[in-house]
Design a protein around this nucleic acid. Structure first.
Lengths: 137, 137
DNA sequence: TAGTAAGTGCGAGATGTTCGCAATTAGTCT
DNA sequence: AGACTAATTGCGAACATCTCGCACTTACTA
């Protein structure tokens, strides 16, 4: 199974906790450490929160997951593969929508050309109001 | 004096603490509650951290200041007047650069047209690497 | 199968932020 | 000017989130 190699190849040990954390991040999409812990506890109730944090950090170091700060306080994590979109964070309902990166291509280009700022598209959060909340208002 | 009316007109009481917090936000540009508290303590040592938090919230409610989450954990505050630029947050040196909003005009337009997402340009944080850090790398 | 270093659990601790409550005080009304 | 009332403050406790140290366990190596 590819997943095992994927972890081993990065020099990581293959623990049930680790696999579960990675699987949870992949299944959940955007999620907080707390949510990930909950998900993991469904199948492995004893798992410790510290372990989740440590694994998220480890997995981030080897590039399998990434985190962003999407408002409020906590960080949210998502799988690295899934980084082909922007995060559109709604300030009202706290939901996170997606949009393909190329919407931002021009914008990123301008920032680079005019300000020398290299935008990290994979670590990108845009605040605003989602279509849903914009209507209701 | 304009500042007093400015607060009174919003239905707020005019306390020394309040004035100092607002002044500090205006002077500091982007700053954390902690930094603001420090600044205020220079002239009013007894001020309590809770008071700073509460005033920032109050001032935000009436639209005089705004906050953004620029990475790490804490929120950073800035005066509402000063919102004519984007925040370019460097992931390496944690510095916050500025760029005029119109760089993003097209981008914002696309998001609105294609996804119905109304970007709040005043609450905008862009992650990446600043010109400085990009060179060093 | 034994050895060892990575990983885990657990509890304590560091931060950053909120809240309840009693005392204070700004603005209002005589 | 003096009194009244509700907003505001200070303070400590309570949270929430995340980090860390340490002893125990366990995945991998040979």
């Amino acid at each position: 199974m590819a997943e095992k190699h994927e972890l081993r190849d990065k020099g990581l040990r293959l623990t049930p906790q680790r696999e579960l954390v990675l699987a949870a991040v992949r299944e959940l999409g955007h999620s907080t450490p707390e949510e990930i812990a909950e998900k993991v506890r469904l199948t492995h109730p004893g798992i410790n929160l510290s372990t989740v944090y440590r694994n998220l950090e480890t997995l981030e170091n080897v590039g399998l997951v990434q985190h962003t700060h999407l408002g409020h306080g906590g960080a949210t994590y998502h799988a690295a593969e899934e980084l082909t979109h922007l995060h559109l964070v709604c300030g009202k309902c706290e939901s996170v929508g997606d949009a393909p990166i190329d919407v931002a291509a021009n914008f990123v280009q301008s920032l680079s050309d005019d300000y020398g700022f290299k935008t990290d598209v994979t670590h990108f959060a845009i605040y605003g109001t989602c279509a849903n909340c914009a209507e209701k208002k």
